[in-house]
Structure formats: C-alpha cells, structure tokens
Design a protein around this nucleic acid. Structure first.
Lengths: 152, 152
DNA sequence: TGGCTTGTTTTGAATTACTCAAAACAAATG
DNA sequence: CATTTGTTTTGAGTAATTCAAAACAAGCCA
C-alpha cells in the first residue's frame, strides 16, 4: 500500500516528468509552482508566490513570474486574463474549455465548451483572419453571492 | 445642401445629445473623447488622450480616464480588455457583438455573434451561476499579417 | 564524478496602465 | 446670475509586470 509520503514522492516525479517533457530543466521553484498550481488552479502570480514561498523561502516573486512565463511558452500551463483581474494560470491545457467568473467575488470555474464541437470557434465572418483560438468568458453571480445579495 | 462645417456642428449636436441622454453633463473633454471614439473605435485611453489633446490641449490624461469611466458606467461606451492589451473602448453597445484580435499586430475588429441567437451565451453547465454576459474573443492572424509572415 | 555549458534565479530597478484625493472650475437649474 | 452639483486639473500613489546584470545550478560529457 502506498503511503502518503511515497504518494508525494510519486507526485513530485510526475511533476518533474511533465516539466522535462516540456523541454525545460527541472528546478525546485518550478516543481513548487507546478504543485501549487495543481492544488489551486486559477491562481495568480502573487498567490502562487505565497504558496511557493512557504515551501521554499528563498524563492523570489520574479522567479515565479519567470517560471510561469516559461511554462506558458512551453504549453505546460495556460494563462488567462479576465478583465479587471491579474493574470491567472491553470494546468488544464489543450482541451478548449472556457471560464465563468463571478462579478462580485471573482471566483473562477471551468466550463466545457457550450456546444461540444466548435461552432462558437468560427465567427460569422472572420474578416480574412486565420482564426486560431476562441476564448469565452461568462460573467455572472456565483451561487454563494446570489444568496449573500438576496439576504443581505 | 449641408456644408462640411454645418455637418460637423450637427455631429457635435448628436454627440452632445447622447451624452445628455446618458444623464451626464456635456463638457468639451467629453465631446472630444466621444468624437475621437467615433473616429477610431477600439482605441485605448492613451490614443484617445492623443487625439483629444491635439484638439483641446488643456485636457489631461486623467480627465480622459474619468470621461471613459463615466461613459462606461452610464452605458454610453463599452470597455473591452483583451489579454495583453490596455483597455479598449468602443461606442457600439448593447448589441452583443464580439471581437477578433490579431496576435501579431493587435488590430481589433468587431464580429457578430457566431450563431445569431445565443447558445454560446449559455454554458454547458453554469455551476449555479446566474449568467449575465458572455464575452467571446477570437484570436488569429489578420489578412495583412498572414501576407507579411508568408512573404518575409 | 567533476567540470562545462547553458539555462535559471536572484537582486534591484524600471515601466505601464491605471487609480486616488483635494482643490479649482464649469454646466445646468431656477 | 447665483447656486448647486458634477467635472477636471494637479500631483501623487499603486498594482502587476518586465528588464538587466550578476550569481547560481541542472544536465551533459568526458
């Protein structure tokens, strides 16, 4: 039976593998950022810095920015930038999912592409563009905030 | 027959009317910003400041930000914030159109909602959210940049 | 296994886009 | 025309991010 600690080691191995597979060197800050992102998807650089820093106190905020930039360029993480928010990062990549954001508390959740296949990826008139991606953000009130605004 | 200058005056009147109709006081900076936005939709605050400043040299950049914030709150303009870009503004409002952005030169064009009615406004699973809006941004290469990248 | 090369991180500073606050000013109303 | 209320100026401040040079470490090679 696999213990908690061997599980953690196995996880570290998987994290390291995916970093290596992306063509990047495996370093402690990179492992820590990737683990923090696994634990909390849709985190911003500052939140990740907080998580990483408690595990690896020498790590600088700039290192976290550097790690995230390298990961994003290598296709290991996806960067999303909802209006009015600092950039958020997630490990779910290459599956064309979208996001729903609460206008009150800013919580973000993943949502599958509304239509399964990709009609919303094809604009009515692409105006000569070679369209590579479609990004959809839904805005609304999350369940919790609906409660809190109707029972103030 | 309407002369160029009476046309300009008529335009100014229409601009003033729409500002007044939005419940805002009509001022020179507001008229100038609204005219600049009519001339160049998808402009950012800095570009608008440039246009306004040449017509009305006393105007400050902060005033432009103030005007745009008041317009956006009043529903007179729409603010869009594509990833990696400063906020852009446009007068087209309340018609649920979307945008297509060139990943190379950052030019922005309007596109109609891909499907006419609103299936893309309804996520597959709204996760308890009360969804109020869906924002779609298409990313790709504009016609010009396709040419310039294939004939370098 | 120890050096070498290349890529990564630290340290420190700078920049961009935007916001805040107080005082001066101007539009609209009667 | 005086007053009220909203707007703009002036000046400063902040958040998020980027840049650059030097120190450092990972992975390769002998």
């Amino acid at each position: 039976m696999m213990t908690d600690s061997s599980q953690r080691v196995a996880d570290a191995g998987l994290l390291a593998d995916s970093i290596r597979l992306a063509g990047l060197k495996v370093t402690a800050p990179r492992l820590a950022v990737l683990r923090a992102l696994s634990d909390s998807p849709h985190s911003n650089a500052d939140a990740l810095f907080g998580a990483v820093h408690s595990e690896l106190p020498g790590t600088s905020l700039q290192a976290v920015y550097g790690v995230l930039a390298a990961f994003a360029t290598a296709g290991l993480v996806r960067k999303i930038e909802p209006a009015g928010s600092p950039a958020l990062f997630e490990r779910r990549v290459d599956d064309n999912h979208h996001h729903i954001v609460c206008t009150r508390c800013s919580v973000v959740h993943d949502v599958e592409c509304a239509v399964g296949h990709a009609p919303c990826l094809t604009p009515a008139d692409a105006l000569g563009f070679d369209v590579r991606a479609a990004e959809v953000i839904y805005w609304g009130l999350c369940a919790q905030c609906q409660l809190e605004t109707t029972h103030p």
